[in-house]
Design a protein around this nucleic acid. Sequence first.
DNA 1: TCGCCGGATTTGTGATCACGCTCGATCATG
DNA 2: CATGATCGAGCGTGATCACAAATCCGGCGA
Lengths: 218, 218
Amino acid sequence: MQIVQRPTPEPSTLSAHDRVYRTLRTQVMHGELAPGHALTLRGIAREFGVSMTPARESVQRLVAEGALTMSASGRVQTPELGNERIEELASIRALLEPELGSRALPRAHSALIDRMEAINAANTDAVLRGDAVTYVRTNLEFHRTLYLRAQSPAMLAMVETIWLQLGPTMRALYGRLRRNTPPPHHRMIVAALKAGDEPGLRLAIRTDVTQGLRHLTQ
Amino acid sequence: MQIVQRPTPEPSTLSAHDRVYRTLRTQVMHGELAPGHALTLRGIAREFGVSMTPARESVQRLVAEGALTMSASGRVQTPELGNERIEELASIRALLEPELGSRALPRAHSALIDRMEAINAANTDAVLRGDAVTYVRTNLEFHRTLYLRAQSPAMLAMVETIWLQLGPTMRALYGRLRRNTPPPHHRMIVAALKAGDEPGLRLAIRTDVTQGLRHLTQ
DNA sequence: TCGCCGGATTTGTGATCACGCTCGATCATG
DNA sequence: CATGATCGAGCGTGATCACAAATCCGGCGA
């Protein structure tokens, strides 16, 4: 009953469950999966060419982070958030993200702002093309690029957890009401950064974060 | 090679990995484990009378929540936080907990306040006895009892994640400088609740949360 | 006395399997 | 035609094992 279990010994740093975890996490955060999308361990294992064990670890971890929900019977799917939950998550974003922006402000030099403007251009482009997934991705990239300068890894991780929980919902939201107007407050954020205007930055971020999620009709 | 694998079919709601997870989580949050305390999967499995699989799932989940850290080689231990990280986590508490208190304030009736005062008495008692673990536990209970009224499960979960990350450090902190003075700002929190004074409540919570962690000598 | 090396032990990782439960399609019944 | 029961396929859970790498600890040499 002896079977060759590991044909390839893996280059260490990339363990199987980490690869699976990272891929799934990105898919969820960027809204590539619709809310309520069901996943199975065997399906994930087949898709990634691994056994059920790494698939389970990845899923378990994503459930712990709120990226996936698990029913009492162990079935797993992307979360379908109600209005209250969406508002609550938006409140948390509105509390944490201005703080991250404020911490990043003194460290935001021109190269960073240039990069943010480039990302914002791609974001606007995605809006005009009606590409919801790219929209969500570049939107988050815009924010993360700024927040990385805050040198506050725990706070950033916390915010990313929120993004993760909102991922499928964001796709559904921006995919539903397909607006052709580019993200309105990103330019205000950039302007406040250039001016070194901290209260203005906080307000711009808060508004940007809040208003996008106010469109909760359910 | 057939073995009876599950002698008891379990009453469903309590799966093995859930039981292990919850026990370990409580131990970490309440500071029952010192910072840097090492854990092994086989040790956990032996201790709980389960196989390695549920032990791994629990540990994986706790690592995802920041309750444990995992080295590159997969070794697991409770986190040893540096000063910057402690300050950062304290900042997050200072942002989120006043908001939770504020949301709970209109729903805080007298029975709740009575319960908080009882918990606070037990907390004071733990201080006088020099019982660090009970101190941490009742301290968190005091806060959680209030925050549960906020009806904001996501925000509460986020705060508990921070508590989890601070658990071992808190024990080490309060165990080191063993002060005989009871928690100073808890009474201010209770007073603000009774008076319906929202700004006072926010300030009291913020101060309570911040000052306890200012004692970071490391 | 201190530093280094090598084998033995312990560790995490991942694959596989048995088991019991869940869920959905199908069919019989009203 | 709608409704409910039934049965099978598929699911998650947990146990066990093989394997490679990390760790520990002894002894040897400087």
